Lab assay of single mutants.
Amino acid sequence: TEYKLVVVGAGGVGKSALTIQLIQNHFVDEYDPTIEDSYRKQVVIDGETCLLDILDTAGQEEYSAMRDQYMRTGEGFLCVFAINNTKSFEDIHQYREQIKRVKDSDDVPMVLVGNKCDLAARTVESRQAQDLARSYGIPYIETSAKTRQGVEDAFYTLVREIRQH
C-alpha cells in the first residue's frame, strides 16, 4: 500500500529536517529553504509493509500558489509548527483551512506536530497545542528532528489516521 503524505507549515519550522531524519536517519543542521522535494521510503507499520511517498513543501509565502496542487494529491498532512515560534503555531489554522477548502472536506487525515521540542526556549505550551488538536479532532505529537524523538511516531500516526479514514 502506498501513502501520499504531505508536510506543511511555516518556513523554518523543520519540515525538511523531520523528513530527512525519518528517511535518512540524520539531522540536517543548516537551513536551506525548500521549494519542493519528495522522498520515498518502505516501512512496516503495524505489520503492514507500506511505501511512504512524502512531499516536503515550501513554507515560504512566495510558493503558496503551489499549495493547491499538492493538497489535492496528498492523502494525509503533517501540519508542523516549531514550539519556539508562536507565529508558526498561529499559521497552522490557515494551512488547515486551505487543506479543507482544496479537499472540499472537513475530515482530512492530519496530525499536528510541534517540532524542536529539544529546545528550552518554548513559547507554545503543550497544552495550547493539545487544545488546538482536540478542537480539530486530530492527534498532537511533539518531535525533535535533532534527537529523533517522536519522528517515526508522527509519520506513522498519520498513516494510521489515513487507514482509519
Rank of each mutant, 00 (worst) to 15 (best):
Y136I: 12
P109Y: 05
G11N: 15
T123C: 10
E61H: 11
A133H: 03
G59I: 09
T34V: 00
R134H: 11
V44R: 04
L22N: 15
T157E: 13
T73F: 06
I54A: 10
G9T: 01
E2A: 03
V113N: 08
A17W: 01
L119K: 12
Q21N: 14
I162V: 09
D53R: 03
G9R: 01
S16Q: 01
L55G: 14
E75V: 06
A82T: 06
I92P: 03
T34A: 01
Y95L: 03
E125N: 09
I162A: 06
L52Y: 13
I99G: 01
K4Q: 03
Y95H: 00
S16D: 00
I138E: 05
S88T: 04
E36S: 00
S105K: 00
D104T: 05
L112I: 13
H26R: 00
L22I: 12
L78D: 06
D68Q: 09
L112E: 08
E48Y: 05
S88L: 04
T73A: 08
R101C: 03
K116W: 15
Y39Q: 03
S126V: 10
Q98M: 12
K103Q: 08
K15S: 04
L158Y: 04
P139Y: 09
V6S: 07
K103L: 09
R163H: 01
M110H: 00
L78K: 01
G59S: 13
K116S: 15
P33Y: 07
S88E: 05
G137W: 00
K103A: 05
Y3C: 07
Y39E: 01
M110N: 01
Y3G: 04
T73L: 06
M110V: 07
R148I: 14
A133G: 09
G47E: 06
I45H: 01
I83H: 09
G137D: 10
Q21E: 14
Q24D: 05
F89D: 09
E97H: 05
E142L: 12
V43W: 07
A58N: 14
R40S: 02
I99T: 02
I54R: 03
A58Q: 14
N84S: 06
I99F: 09
R40L: 00
K4C: 07
I99D: 00
Q21H: 14
D29P: 07
D46A: 08
R148T: 14
A133P: 03
D32H: 08
A133T: 07
I138D: 07
I141Y: 12
A129H: 08
V159F: 14
A10T: 08
E75G: 02
Y140D: 04
K87S: 06
Y70T: 02
A82W: 03
G114K: 01
Q42M: 00
V108M: 08
E36W: 02
S126N: 13
N115F: 01
A17Y: 00
D37H: 01
I45M: 09
A65K: 05
R72Y: 06
Q149L: 12
R160V: 14
F81M: 09
V111P: 08
I20Y: 03
P109T: 02
R96L: 10
I138N: 05
P109A: 07
G114Q: 13
Q42K: 04
T1P: 06
E90N: 07
D153W: 13
N25S: 05
L22C: 13
V44E: 05
I23A: 09
R148L: 15
Y63Q: 15
L51M: 05
T143D: 12
N84W: 07
R163G: 08
K15C: 05
N115M: 15
S64G: 13
I35Y: 14
Q98C: 00
T1C: 03
E97V: 04
R96I: 13
D29T: 00
E48N: 04
F77D: 02
N85R: 03
I35T: 07
D56T: 02
Q149H: 10
T157P: 07
K15V: 00
Y136S: 09
E90I: 09
I141H: 08
A10H: 07
G59T: 06
V7C: 11
K100D: 00
D53L: 06
E61R: 14
Y3V: 02
R72V: 05
Q94G: 06
G150D: 12
E75W: 08
M71R: 14
Y3N: 09
L51W: 05
D56F: 01
L119M: 13
K116C: 15
Q42N: 08
L55K: 00
G9W: 00
P33Q: 07
L5M: 09
K87D: 07
L119F: 14
A145H: 12
E161G: 12
I23E: 06
A145Y: 11
D29N: 01
V151W: 15
V113L: 12
L51I: 00
V111T: 11
R127H: 11
Q24A: 13
L158C: 06
Y95E: 07
E75L: 05
G76Y: 10
A121M: 04
P139G: 05
A154D: 01
R122E: 11
R67D: 15
E48V: 04
S126D: 12
N25D: 10
Y156E: 15
C50D: 09
Q149W: 07
A129D: 00
V43Y: 05
L119V: 12
G137K: 07
V124G: 14
D91F: 05
G59D: 08
N115Q: 13
R96V: 10
M110A: 01
T123H: 08
D37R: 02
K4P: 04
V124R: 11
D107G: 03
R127V: 07
R122H: 13
I54Q: 00
M71F: 01
G11K: 15
K100V: 06
Q42Y: 01
C117W: 09
Q60E: 15
H93Q: 12
I54D: 00
G59V: 10
L5Y: 00
F27M: 13
K41M: 05
R134P: 10
V43S: 06
G11I: 15
Y140R: 09
V151M: 15
N84D: 09
S38T: 06
E90A: 08
D32E: 15
D68G: 04
